[in-house]
């Protein structure tokens, strides 16, 4: 009888806990992870600078346009290693960039045809395991 009473008390408590406890999880409310394709928080990427980069190779000197940007690591919900998928909207080419320097959140995109005085826009996505997150766009104008 005592066991029955103990069990009944535990049962009522558990039922109350189940009834009053957290309910189902609405996937629509999960939008705060920057790696989520449905992420709707603040912009993850921020342009740092763009400049002309002189590359000297034997027999020639090349001028490239470097676009430097970074990902806002403070938006990440946990520590993350990742790449960035870049689509150069001027020529439609796609590249995958790793941090530069490594183990930072800084990236450098180098295009071989500098555009002076006009914005070069890049579509950027966080990229991991062959899948990409939300697309953002940054534009850089070389003066």
């Amino acid at each position: 009888m005592k066991t029955l009473r103990t069990y009944s008390t535990a049962l009522i408590s558990t039922i109350a806990l189940l009834g009053c406890g957290k309910g189902e999880l609405d996937p629509g409310t999960l939008t705060n992870n920057p790696f989520d394709p449905d992420y709707n928080g603040p912009a993850v990427f921020e342009l740092d600078t763009t400049f002309l980069e002189v590359v000297v190779i034997p027999g020639a000197t090349l001028l490239n346009q470097a676009i430097v940007f970074h990902a806002k690591a403070e938006l990440f919900l946990s520590d993350a290693a990742y790449s960035v998928r870049v689509v150069d909207q001027m020529n439609g080419l796609t590249y995958t960039l790793d941090p530069n320097p490594t183990n930072t959140d800084r990236f450098k995109y180098v295009r071989s045809e500098p555009v002076i005085g006009a914005p070069v826009c890049l579509e950027l996505r966080l990229f991991n395991n062959q899948s990409a997150a939300r697309a953002e766009q940054i534009c850089a104008t070389l003066q």
């Binding site: 999880l25 989520d36 395991n129």
Partner: peptide
């Protein structure tokens, strides 16, 4: 309930976009 809490935690720690999509479209429902 515990599994659902674990999935919520997984959403917060995941850095795999396709995994997050599968999480939201299949595993959580």
């Amino acid at each position: 309930r515990k599994d659902l809490d674990a999935l919520a935690d997984e959403y917060n720690t995941s850095t795999y976009p396709a995994g997050i999509t599968a999480l939201k479209n299949e595993r959580i429902p």
